[in-house]
């Protein structure tokens, strides 16, 4: 089994009001060192072992998991611990 973590974030330059709200709030809590906050989402996939895991997940991302008009994504593949 492979565990693939997909991090989806808004593209550079796309307004992220949620990130801005968090940033303002952090500043008001005294965390003035915060320069920028960008939000995103994490999707975890458990996959059967096969050769082209990365390519398959890339395809999933472009087809469904991320919207290329506004979003970027990064993959992280690791061995899943058998439970």
């Amino acid at each position: 089994m492979k565990k693939v973590t997909v991090h989806v974030t808004l593209k550079e330059g796309i307004l992220d009001p949620q990130g801005q709200t968090i940033e303002t709030s952090l500043h008001s809590l005294g965390f003035t060192e915060v320069e920028e906050v960008r939000t995103g989402k994490t999707i975890e996939l458990l996959l059967n072992d096969q050769d082209n895991v990365e390519a398959r997940v890339q395809a999933m991302c472009t087809k469904l998991l991320a919207n290329p008009v506004i979003e970027d994504y990064q993959l992280h593949v690791e061995e899943a611990l058998q439970s």
Partner: peptide
């Protein structure tokens, strides 16, 4: 329609969230 590519562009959350 946007997500399916029939129309260009994408939707973001309302500015005021």
């Amino acid at each position: 329609l946007l997500e399916s590519g029939l129309l260009p562009g994408a939707m973001l959350p309302n500015e005021k969230l």
